[in-house]
Amino acid sequence: MNEQDIKSMIETILTDMTSTKEADKNNVGPQTADSAPKEATQQDISGDVLDDITKIDLRKQFLVPHPHDREGYLKIKSFTPARLGMWRAGCRYKTASVLRFRADHAAAQDAVFSDVDPQLPKEMGFLETQTTCQSKDEYLTRPDHGRKFSDEMAEKIKQSVTPSPKIQMIVGDGLSSAAIEANVKDIIPAIQQGLKVYGLSFETKDVIFVKYARVGAEDQIGEITNADVVCMLVGERPGLVTAKSMSAYIAYKPTVGMPEANRTVVSNIHDGGLPAVEAGAYIAELLDKMIRLKKSGIDLKAAENAGN
């Protein structure tokens, strides 16, 4: 064995030794005190906030990793609010898309099952009333109870608002309290301003706020107040796109049991649909039209089609 051989032999041995050592080191991991799970200390918790996933524009969110035609996909996806291009995890959904779906559903359910902030009707100066429903549950399962007022409540309404008005405004929680909270403060003044163009008006104190309200509640109010036109702003059943959509159901001299077709409806009032102020302006014009033509619903449409 020459020097060269010895040298290379030693080298081999040393290399083997060190690599064994390395391997051992790698194996010991969890046993050492250093790497045992430990409670996070204050310093470990970052002050950062995760991004709000509900702010992601669904029309632009795109999770397909290797699309055949990315640009084309984004283009066709832009034509629909549907949740397309969300890809999959096996045959299931991606975490991001399933969490967003749950967030939107949570907002929708909260809008249904919570009450309108009790401060809102007070701040606005509305007359506060309630249908015969005693709870949200009763409201959801008994639509008939959500259309009726007790005799005492009817009397309260009669005593509190201006009798036989041209326009009786109503705000009802309906199926979305969030819709009322989001839109009422903008739509009421917009309707009032629009009515001025037609020489009409109503006072905010005469607006009736109805808790547990179904649309049909406006019929009894029409009978109680003897108004020419009754307009009810009510929260719509929430979808996943928005939980804040409101509708207006407007009727000329409504009576209990009248055909549904006699109502004129303006739906989809929310910040992604028809903005509240613009809806208010449009409703003002409709109110004027109904007072002039003494009609609403399909009768109004027929009269308009016949050339006024």
Partner: peptide, 17 residues
């Protein structure tokens, strides 16, 4: 229905998955 969310009828069904 895409991701079980019907954007026209506003209800939830079953998705492709």
């Amino acid at each position: 229905v895409p991701h079980a969310d019907d954007v026209m009828l506003n209800y939830e069904s079953t998705g492709f998955q």
